[in-house]
Each structure stands twice: as structure tokens, then as C-alpha cells.
Simulated assay, not measured.
Amino acid sequence: MKFAIVFAALFALAVAASPASYKDAQVLRSESDVGVDSFHYNLETSDGTSQQAQGQLKQVDAENSAVVQSGSYKYIADDGQTYSINWTADEFGFHPEGAHLPVAPEA
């Protein structure tokens, strides 16, 4: 149950974060498969936005589990450029990567 709630919350956050101009986009492709301990989905819209993700429940130790996820999304911004993000999320946090994102200096 916890897994489904986390998935639904992340999906709702992604949709709610879309700028108003994206709300008129038409869904071209939408696929999803949500199971008890795993999920995956793909979404593509007419405005050039697409996203995909997959995840599964991971037993971290004897008492704790985490939903380990990975995915990507891309969109065309107001400046006309296409921005792409690849990301992972696990028991250590959210880790996005993209050519336009700043990178922390090495320690």
C-alpha cells in the first residue's frame, strides 16, 4: 500500500508542476503497470513532453524497505530548447542528471 501511495504522489507532483501552457497538451501515449512491489509507466504528450519511470520495492535491511526508482523526462521550455533529465531515487535520496543542471565540485 505504501508503494502505491508513493507512486501516486510522485505522479501527481509531476503533473501539478507543469506550467499552465502544458495543460492544453493532448496525451499521445500513456502506458502503466503498477504491481504490488514494482511499477513502470510511459507518458508522451503533443507538446513534446515525455516521461518514463520504473521502480521496485527493495529490502534495505531486516526492518526497512525502500522504493528504488529510475526514470527520465524531457520537455520543451519557453526558450524553445528541449531539456532532458535522467534520475534515480532510492534510500539515499533523489539524484537528477541533466546537461543544464549544475554539478557540485568534487570534494
Rank of each mutant, 00 (worst) to 15 (best):
S18N: 01
V36S: 11
S72W: 11
Q59L: 08
L28G: 02
D24A: 10
Q81C: 08
V68G: 01
I76M: 03
Q54D: 11
Y75R: 03
A53H: 05
Y83T: 10
S46K: 12
V68S: 08
L28E: 14
A17N: 10
F7H: 02
L43A: 04
T88D: 05
T49S: 13
L28N: 08
Q52S: 13
Q52D: 05
S21D: 12
E97S: 15
K74S: 07
N86M: 02
A14V: 00
H100W: 08
H100N: 04
D61Q: 07
Q56M: 06
S32N: 07
F92N: 15
D47S: 07
D47I: 02
D33H: 05
T45H: 07
G93M: 09
L10W: 05
L13R: 07
S46R: 12
S72F: 08
W87R: 03
S50H: 13
Y75T: 09
Y83H: 15
N64K: 11
D79S: 05
G98R: 15
S84D: 11
Q81D: 10
F7M: 00
A107K: 06
V15D: 10
V103T: 15
I76R: 08
A14D: 07
S32W: 07
S21T: 11
D90E: 12
Q51G: 09
A77N: 12
A9G: 05
Q56N: 06
Q54Y: 11
I76L: 04
A16N: 00
I76V: 15
S21A: 13
Q56H: 10
R29A: 13
G48D: 14
D37M: 02
D24M: 06
L13M: 02
K23N: 12
E91Q: 14
A12D: 14
A107V: 05
K23W: 14
L28A: 02
K58I: 15
H95Y: 00
T49V: 06
S84V: 15
K2N: 12
H95T: 03
Y83C: 07
E97W: 10
T49Y: 14
A104G: 02
T49C: 03
H95Q: 05
N86A: 06
L43M: 12
F92C: 04
V60N: 15
K2C: 06
K58P: 01
G93H: 13
P96K: 03
Q59P: 00
A4D: 05
H100A: 03
G93Q: 10
A66N: 14
L13P: 00
V60Y: 13
S70F: 07
